[in-house]
């Protein structure tokens, strides 16, 4: 796969709520280092229609993003997970509604990555 995660980071960069927390700086940095890889995996799964993988990655980021100081990213991930899991039967293919939510999720991830780890001046 040659796909690279490169959505349009429209909107302001997002800083971690814990950017000034000395106990969390290293963890937030690690999260930001790993986020492109995770979003790349989510995007590849999206392109190939592997909704189970999209759901798993969004589930993980839903649970952890707020812990790193990015609650909005967690909320956006949760919306993707809920639509896939909550549909009856669970979604196994892309839908226009899911696409809106997935692109929103990607947009938040891009803004988080653009925000970096250190506290804004």
């Amino acid at each position: 796969m040659s796909y690279a995660f490169n959505p349009d980071p429209s909107g302001l960069p997002i800083k971690s709520e814990f950017a000034g927390d000395p106990d969390m700086g290293d963890l937030v940095e690690l999260f930001l280092q790993e986020l492109p890889g995770r979003m790349g995996a989510a995007a590849r799964a999206w392109e190939s229609g592997e909704m189970e993988t999209v759901q798993r990655i969004s589930h993980q980021l839903r649970g952890s993003s707020a812990g790193y100081g990015y609650p909005m990213l967690g909320t956006a991930a949760g919306a993707v997970e809920d639509l896939i899991r909550g549909s009856v039967p669970p979604l196994t293919a892309r839908t226009p509604r899911l696409e809106v939510l997935f692109r929103t999720f990607e947009g938040f991830a891009a803004r988080v990555m653009a925000g970096g780890v250190r506290k804004a001046a």
């Binding site: 963890l27 690690l30 999260f31 993980q60 980021l61 649970g63 952890s64 812990g67 790193y68």
Partner: peptide, 9 residues
């Protein structure tokens, strides 16, 4: 937990 993030946090 299957998420490494949760372990770290």
């Amino acid at each position: 937990d299957d998420s490494p993030d949760v372990h770290r946090l």
